[in-house]
């Protein structure tokens, strides 16, 4: 079953007088449970494609389907509902709410989802333990390392049990060790929970974790190949 289907996606941006091509007729199908990396140099369209998949940005033309929903036809509110309940996001800059503790950051999203108060704390602690942050639930983001903050962001992303996690350069701000730990976590979640992962990166070590590597350049899809995953430790 397909988790994401993109058909002839086009997107352009204006920068003054200049028109920049973000996506140029990108077609792609990702099955549920896949672990996919989008790679390519800066400006290749990785983030633009990821944003389109997450319903954060609308393509100029083309179709995009996540699960059974055509995102390109939905309104703002409906897109927000899908993002809240079906898609988890992990950002390069962690983007945690600085005044909330690790647990509260996770709980906050669950509250928006309507999870009863009695369950929220329990679930938040469970998911934080799952990402290796047991005992750090009460710490503020400023009291956590970059790797730990990114783990909180992952916990926040998976707390709603999404079918799809979109990660935009999730290791860009992490040291090698933290990056390896994060990728191991992604792989574990992919294998144990069956969550579909789409990760944009230009880090070749991260690409090594993927079972499928999609390359973009100048907004065009230039290759889409399965690969044998290996870890950073394996080089």
């Amino acid at each position: 079953m397909s988790a994401i289907i993109c058909k002839d996606l086009c997107k352009t941006f204006r920068q003054g007088e200049e028109v920049i091509t973000g996506l140029d007729k990108v077609s792609l199908s990702i099955d549920a449970g896949e672990f996919v990396c989008l790679s390519g140099p800066s400006g290749s369209g990785k983030t633009t494609l990821l944003n389109a998949m997450g319903g954060l940005d609308r393509p100029d033309s083309g179709e995009i389907t996540v699960g059974e929903q055509r995102l390109d036809t939905l309104g703002k509110g409906e897109l927000a509902d899908i993002r809240l309940n079906s898609i988890g996001f992990v950002f390069q800059a962690y983007n945690l709410i600085p005044v909330l503790s690790a647990r509260e950051n996770v709980e906050f999203i669950m509250q928006v989802q309507g999870v009863p108060a009695a369950q929220r704390r329990l679930l938040a602690d469970q998911v934080l333990a799952e990402v290796g942050l047991a005992g750090m639930e009460g710490r503020l983001p400023s009291e956590l390392s970059g790797g730990q903050q990114q783990r909180v962001a992952v916990a926040r992303a998976i707390a709603s049990k999404p079918r799809l996690v979109l990660a935009d350069e999730p290791t860009a701000n992490l040291d090698t060790h933290s990056a390896a730990q994060l990728m191991d976590l992604f792989v574990a979640l992919n294998q144990e929970r069956g969550v579909t992962f789409v990760i944009s990166t230009h880090d070749t070590r991260v690409m090594g974790y993927a079972r499928r590597l999609v390359r973009l350049q100048d907004g065009r899809l230039i290759s889409d190949e399965p690969q044998q995953p290996h870890t950073m430790a394996q080089g």
């Binding site: 997450g54 954060l56 703002k76 509110g77 927000a80 509902d81 899908i82 993002r83 809240l84 309940n85 898609i87 996001f89 950002f91 983007n95 709410i97 999203i109 928006v112 989802q113 926040r156």
Partner: peptide
């Protein structure tokens, strides 16, 4: 603004 953008991305509506 950036923080609100992240919240929107995570699925919070502007009403929230």
């Amino acid at each position: 603004t950036r923080e609100f953008g992240v919240m929107l991305a995570l699925g919070m509506g502007p009403g929230r």
